[in-house]
Amino acid sequence: MNETGTQNETRSHTFSVLVDNETGVLHRVVGLFSGRGYNIDSLTVSEVDPVSGYSKITIVTSGSESVINQIREQLRRLVPVQKVSDLTTDGRSVQRELALVKVNGTGEDRVDAMAIGDKFQAQIVDSTTESFVFEIVGSSDTVDRFISEIMPLGLVDVSRTGIVAIARGAEEM
């Protein structure tokens, strides 16, 4: 039996990548994906440790087991990459996404929109007489469901952050 096995089925994986926060580092990571033909389904990046100058990039990608192995090792080859963990295989993780959702409407629709907002524990972060902006936080799935439920009530705009993720439990990265 070979180390990699022979599974070809495509699976979604979430990578958490700790990088030196230097110019071009995001380009390097994104360039790796485009240059080698890997998918990016979601990508987020932000500085997480201003003292040591680390940023964390969370990437959701998909591929066969051998492609996922390649992605992990290719990421590790990049000089500014300090750490790569595959949150999908390395244990359980929490994954969250935030969305700002603008709904325009009056009368009944407004009441219904607020009810859906309540159900999903979405906050109203801006309102006018004919519009609301909801802020919703949850798994991508929850955000998807919220959006599809509120869509018929006058949804006009959505901004999503993409996924951030972290390993569950006491484990440090």
């Binding site: 070979n2 180390e3 990699t4 051998s66 192995n69 390649q70 090792e73 290719q74 590790r76």
Partner: peptide
């Protein structure tokens, strides 16, 4: 180079 292992041939 760890990325060379199992890249083309397992």
């Amino acid at each position: 180079d760890p990325s060379s292992l199992n890249k083309n041939v397992s």
